[in-house]
Write a protein that binds this DNA or RNA. Structure first.
Lengths: 360, 360
DNA sequence: ACGGTCTGCGCAATCGGTTGCGTTGTACAC
DNA sequence: GTGTACAACGCAACCGATTGCGCAGACCGT
């Protein structure tokens, strides 16, 4: 029977000791019994478990992790939970972690270095067994100094610029093959007759530079030698999609490759306001493969990024590393193009035309 | 100077004791100094802090919370991090919490009772100072038995069906005024000449029933006495938006009020595939006000739900309750309609027409 | 010189589990 | 009868902080 004490006092939490007492065994035996330690007889184990259930015993994670020096907790640092891509990553990460018995502390860093450092500090205080950093601005070096590098993994669903000049290994990295994705996008466009192709950037962020470069290279590789147009934001401040659309509409290319789907969709909206039709007047391809790209009007052709896979891969890789005492692995995620309605086949000879490919 | 010990052994964590030793004070003084206890002289405080910084001391949250019986941690249970609405709520919740010095453990319950119970168990083990439950299937009663009711708040950005037959107070609740929202939507439609108005449901979920009822009542209140059409999903299984669109197109109403924006947008896409134009052939209004509703084609008229405000309200209310030892308050969030392009003014006398409003 | 009041700091208990090691009890062999 | 092996369990230390209480020394007044 449960002793209630009569009064409605703030019911004292039931401790392992209470369970032990109720089962008439020592604390240590109770602890082992609940952990299914083979040294404890089956009968005793059952007795203890029954008592625990009866008393509604809930172990104290803090006390346990203090002793065992493991928290079964992971830290997840990302820029923003509202973003579809990060939401996808976070969702998959959390699921995978939970299935493996870990729970996760999520902190949004908002692409702000100070906040990101605070986040890592929080993880350190909580002694998380591992940390995943998704698309953040903090440098790997900086991050390594704040949390155990062996317990650290970077996830870059949108770029991997941080990892070029930083030596062979910084920790685990789950990165995307932006070059491959850009190639697929460009191939699709060129094969369908598009020639005047522009890249529309997402600002001054490093992630943008990577995709811009990837697209530029893919264009060069296909012999598109017309100076690639690139609409970057002004160094200061941000252009609204409306402003950007106006600039673009003033000298309309045949196709636009956008930094990401969010930009592509916003741009489609803004262009529509200007009377520019997609894909009739201009083709558009995005990056990321967010859910809404599949039901927009027109549906968006996009380079799909396996955000969910990246999230779960990060979690499982991290956990494996923690348990084995190794360093999280590094994996490169392939990107595939999903062709929809925002691009079409241009009514023009698909074979490379002499006048455009110059001396090809 | 930092003693490194030479070898690359798994650098022992630095403890408060180390800081104390380095500052030549006792542990207790070190602890108090770091907490800026007035009893410790300023000079000593500075000395200790310097030592802590020098040694890169990071306090152990588990040890601390074990002692102080407070974890400065909140639990957040929601169905899915991928959902725009929940993402918004989670984002705001996390921000607010972090600003107040709390960190948050997020668990996705996926509208699955078992998983939700596991989540609450996790929160209980971690002794979270408070728990917020967003749009979940677990009953308030059930939840109250698993976590301290005084530390519990429900957030219902999409419905509040759980709270009708459950007594006056179940814990804190942040709920939405769906009735008001539905009224605004219906008023807008009716004022613009729409008469044959249907509600398109989101399945058998309780949340759907609430909005369906709210819309039905709003229609009745405006004297729209034609039997309100309502496209519910079949009891078993789910209809695809395509199926749903086909059914709707077969006998097209003048306007559709959808359970949420996601459904509205999917429906617009499916209807377009069937050659039905929005808003020319049918008006559409959604619920939630997700970001993408603002840039869809056509832009979606929708009942805006202040998800972010709800998230931060939940966090601050919860924290306040925890600190004051009171019960989290209950608030009702007003919903406002944002009119965009998916509805228009019908070329029909706006005044109620005799033949439709029957004996009005 | 001596009692009283502060100021600044340290001792040791405490939070709630886990675990190395030792102890008890029984069975079995010799 | 005694030694040995093994199964089942208990004692007490430990994890790393926080904090109630007490104590030493400085300072002051008389």
């Amino acid at each position: 029977m449960i002793e209630n004490g009569g009064a409605a006092e703030p019911r004292r939490r039931v401790l392992l000791t209470d369970v032990a007492k109720s089962a008439k065994v020592s604390d240590s035996t109770a602890s082992r019994a609940l952990a299914d330690d083979q040294r404890i007889s089956l009968a005793t184990r059952r007795k203890v478990k029954a008592a625990a259930a009866e008393l509604h015993y809930v172990p104290n994670a803090a006390a346990r992790s203090l002793r065992v020096r493991r928290t079964k907790t992971l830290g997840l640092l990302l820029p923003d939970l509202r973003d579809p891509v990060h939401g996808q990553v976070a969702s998959a990460f959390e699921q995978e972690a939970r299935q493996r018995g870990y729970c996760v502390i999520i902190v949004a860093g908002e692409k702000d270095l100070a906040r990101e450092r605070v986040a890592l500090r929080i993880f350190a205080e909580h002694r998380t067994d591992g940390v995943a950093i998704v698309s953040c601005v903090i440098s790997p070096k900086d991050a390594r100094e704040r949390v155990d590098p062996d317990r650290l993994i970077f996830v870059q669903p949108d770029h991997r610029s941080l990892f070029r000049s930083d030596g062979p290994r910084v920790a685990g990295v789950i990165q995307t093959d932006d070059a491959g994705g850009a190639r697929a996008a460009v191939d699709h466009l060129v094969d369908n007759g598009y020639r005047r192709i522009a890249y529309v950037g997402g600002g001054a962020r490093a992630s943008n530079a990577v995709r811009a470069e990837a697209v530029a290279k893919a264009l060069r590789d296909r012999g598109i030698r017309t100076a690639p147009i690139s609409y970057a934001n002004s160094a200061e401040g941000w252009r609204t999609p409306g402003d950007l659309a106006a600039v673009i509409a003033a000298d309309l290319p045949e196709a636009l490759v956008c930094y990401d789907d969010k930009l592509a969709l916003a741009l489609m909206d803004a262009l529509r306001a200007l009377g520019v039709r997609v894909p009739d007047d201009v083709g558009i391809v995005g990056f990321d493969g967010i859910p809404f790209a599949g039901i927009s009007n027109p549906r968006l052709t996009t380079v799909n990024v396996p955000s969910a896979e990246m999230g779960s891969a990060a979690a499982s890789s991290l956990i494996r590393a923690v348990q084995l005492g190794t360093v999280p692995e590094t994996v490169l995620m392939p990107l595939d193009l999903v062709v929809r309605e925002s691009t079409r086949t241009l009514p023009r000879p698909a074979a490379p035309t002499k006048e455009r490919t110059a001396r090809a």
